[in-house]
Design a protein around this nucleic acid. Structure first.
Lengths: 344, 344
DNA sequence: CTGTTAGCGCCTTCAT
DNA sequence: ATGAAGGCGCTAACAG
């Protein structure tokens, strides 16, 4: 590999001049600049990023940090998709993404204990997912690195975040069951308390329910998997026999709920309408196809990329919390018609 | 951030001694080593990875390179999962993974045109997916970086690869249709020619078919998506009206085939048995649940991690091609019984 | 406009 | 067992 020195020697100028020419800095005559560019091409010169980082103390690297179990999240490319959006957009600005998945222990030990966050390898962190402890986020932000949250938010802080409109999306889904299908007894199947997204979705459900003069019926279980959806639906059906519809806080739970209905010989949507949240990849292949709320994962990643680059490069950013709209995707599990046959 | 110098000054020794102590090199008395370690902890010292890389010319970074459309592959976390396995295992050896997704243009332009492959940012590349052009692979390997292939292989080269047993898996699937269910007219739905994995799966199908004294009936379409599976199945059903079973080279095509059957009022598996390949996450939620061949994606990533670290660190590695077994996952779409109800 | 000097933080001879 | 010196490849400050 040839170095800056090689190019300088080749052209017969100093290294400083080559550096200036290659970095589009002023102070080089058009002619020598030309000769330098040609020489660089000829010698197949590429600036060594390590050396550059050492002097500039910028790595043009962003860490995509998630809880290890989230990547891939049990069964769906939710976070991978965010990462892809991130990578795609960062690449345009010549930034790179590094994947960092953290165990529970590492998450509780905190950012100080992680070499990769301390050794100057990265300029910024994108912390993805509601299961990154607030303490971790705060201490990471205090460490001098630029920090962004995605699919998570810390109220009462200035840490910028990109989130889906969980509340609005869940309200829309619940409204749809009430208004388009006339349901009056609608359960909410949710996971553990404490995660921002779950709380927000619950709020959306409750607000739609209350606005229609109905009673909220919430069942909480400890996780948000297919299995726990199965369990939560059974609990709900036992507790509220007159229930005709269920809103699940995510698609995995919704799938579980549909399985639970099936195991009780209830037809979906005739006997029990079900809607989910996330619009994961296989929601459309569920039987019946799942009505759900879309979360624009790719967009979240893209936006996070722009925002973190702005922060790293010291640009002024106003918004500290960006909410992306989450639209209802109507399929068949809510009771709407849906042509079978060809894929959509 | 404190530097090596700071620690040295604090303890009252030279930087060289601190370096030796921290890197477990001989030539430091047990006592000073102790004092240095304590000082480092106290000052919250972390070696700066950039500076270290500059002197050692090692970055402890591996690039995970895929075609951009593969990540996430159309709808399933196949490559994300490989990447996760890679990351998980690399992390144990203090290596990091960077995600690089390449467009068609970048793939044809070749590795020389990609700064990230030329600027000394990484020690090695894991090239994932059959759609990385051979030329790209060869030139990457010639560039001095350590290279590994995953879910792809280049015959007649020494480039190490980790692949699933595509041939054996597809043979097993086809055998199952013949032996367990007595099918005699079995179609193969495949995508474009040229990709190693597709070719190998086709070979497995053909060998099973021939071993049973049957005739291969292959339908090739240009892609391997749900849509193209729909199309291929329709073509096959038109061409071979007596066909009672279909093997698809991947699960997406299998899902498409089941939809095609449905649109012709054929029941799966009664009128048309279908098996897929990959065991993607939603295969088990298909209706009926899809019988398919599992590909151990996590394991592929883990193994790739070990092998590339060995290569980077100059260890001797014998195998240039590692084949991981791919087992048949029997569900209902092949005609076997499968209890409905609770998730599996 | 161009060159010289210095230094980023670390590792590695070579001396002592 | 320890220290001094040099250099990895690049950028930045200061001269000219």
């Amino acid at each position: 590999m040839s170095s800056l020195q090689d190019v300088a020697a080749f052209v017969g100028v100093s290294a400083a001049t080559v550096s200036r020419a290659l970095n589009d800095k002023p102070g080089v005559s058009t002619e020598t600049r030309q000769r330098i560019l040609e020489a660089a091409r000829e010698l197949r010169y590429w600036p060594n990023s390590t050396a550059r980082s050492l002097t500039t103390s910028r790595t043009r690297t962003v860490l995509f940090v998630t809880h290890r179990h989230k990547f891939p999240p049990s069964e769906d490319p939710f976070y991978p998709q965010i990462m892809r959006g991130l990578e795609e957009t960062l690449a345009r600005d010549d930034y790179n993404v590094m994947l960092v998945t953290l165990t529970d222990e590492q998450l509780t030990a905190g950012p100080e204990a992680l070499p990769v966050l301390q050794d100057g390898r990265a300029d910024g962190l994108v912390l993805a997912g509601p299961d990154i402890p607030p303490g971790f986020v705060l201490r990471a932000a205090a460490s001098g690195l630029s920090v962004m949250l995605v699919d998570n938010a810390l109220r009462e802080t200035q840490i910028p975040a990109v989130v889906a409109d969980n509340e609005g999306g869940c309200r829309a889904a619940t409204d749809h069951l009430i208004e388009a299908h006339g349901h009056r007894v609608i359960g909410l199947l949710r996971g553990a308390e404490g995660w921002a997204t779950s709380e927000e979705r619950t709020t959306g459900y409750c607000s739609a329910i209350r606005a229609a003069g109905l009673t909220p019926r919430v069942v909480s279980v400890s996780e948000t998997t297919i299995e726990s959806g199965f369990e939560a639906a059974n609990q709900a059906l036992d507790a509220y026999p007159e229930m005709t519809a269920a809103v699940a806080v995510n698609d995995a739970m919704a799938i579980g709920a549909m399985r639970a209905a099936g195991s009780r010989n209830l037809r979906v949507p005739a006997d029990l309408a079900v809607v989910g949240f996330d619009n994961i990849s296989w929601a459309k292949f569920a039987e019946p196809p799942l009505t759900t709320v879309n979360v624009p994962t790719l967009e979240m990643g893209r936006l996070a990329a722009r925002l973190i680059v702005d922060r790293i490069e010291g640009e002024f950013t106003v918004a500290s919390r960006t909410i992306l709209t989450s639209d209802l995707v109507v399929r068949a599990s809510c009771g709407c018609e849906k042509a079978a046959g060809a894929p959509d």
